[in-house]
Computed example of a mutant assay.
Amino acid sequence: MARTWEGVTGRLSLVLAVLLHRTVTGQAAKRRLQHWRDAALRAAYRRGVPVEVIASRTRLTRRRVRTVVAGGKPPPVDGAA
């Protein structure tokens, strides 16, 4: 039974993350809402929502979603290639 609730709460966390992701405006609001969005993405991932589903629903890349759920920042881009 706990597994059922984890799936439901994971999906609800994902819906919240999508809502926050799509309503980001302004610099200060953008930082605040992205922080909340990232927390909701991590909650959805912890409750069993796969990275691919999160990425497709939020329109983020899978790499970015993996970085967010890992709690880190994206690696710097090497321009010397």
Rank of each mutant, 00 (worst) to 15 (best):
M1Y: 02
A2L: 13
A2Y: 13
W5E: 06
E6T: 09
G7C: 08
G7Q: 11
G7V: 06
V8D: 04
T9G: 02
T9K: 05
G10M: 08
G10V: 01
G10D: 00
R11V: 05
L12A: 04
L12D: 02
L12E: 00
S13I: 00
S13G: 05
S13K: 03
L14V: 02
L14R: 03
V15S: 08
V15G: 09
L16T: 08
A17Y: 02
V18F: 11
V18Q: 05
L19Y: 11
R22V: 03
R22W: 10
R22A: 10
T23E: 15
T25E: 11
G26N: 09
Q27V: 07
Q27Y: 07
Q27N: 05
A28C: 05
A29T: 02
R31W: 01
R31M: 03
R32C: 01
R32M: 04
R32Y: 07
R32F: 10
L33F: 06
Q34M: 01
H35E: 05
H35N: 09
W36V: 13
D38E: 07
A39V: 15
A39Y: 13
A39E: 15
A39W: 14
A40I: 01
L41F: 10
L41R: 06
L41N: 08
L41Q: 09
R42A: 12
A43T: 08
A43M: 10
A44T: 09
Y45Q: 03
R46K: 12
R46D: 13
R47G: 01
R47T: 15
R47Q: 15
G48K: 12
G48P: 00
V49F: 15
P50N: 12
P50M: 10
P50C: 07
P50R: 10
V53R: 10
V53Y: 09
I54G: 04
I54T: 03
S56P: 07
S56M: 09
S56Y: 10
R57M: 11
T58G: 01
R59F: 13
R59M: 03
L60V: 03
R62N: 01
R62C: 05
R62Y: 03
R64A: 11
V65Y: 08
V65A: 03
R66H: 06
R66C: 04
R66P: 00
R66F: 00
V68M: 06
V68Q: 00
V69N: 03
A70I: 06
A70R: 15
G71L: 07
G71S: 05
G71H: 11
G72D: 07
G72W: 04
G72H: 05
K73F: 12
P74W: 07
P74R: 15
P74D: 13
P74T: 14
P75C: 07
P75R: 11
D78N: 11
A80R: 10
A81D: 06
A81H: 13
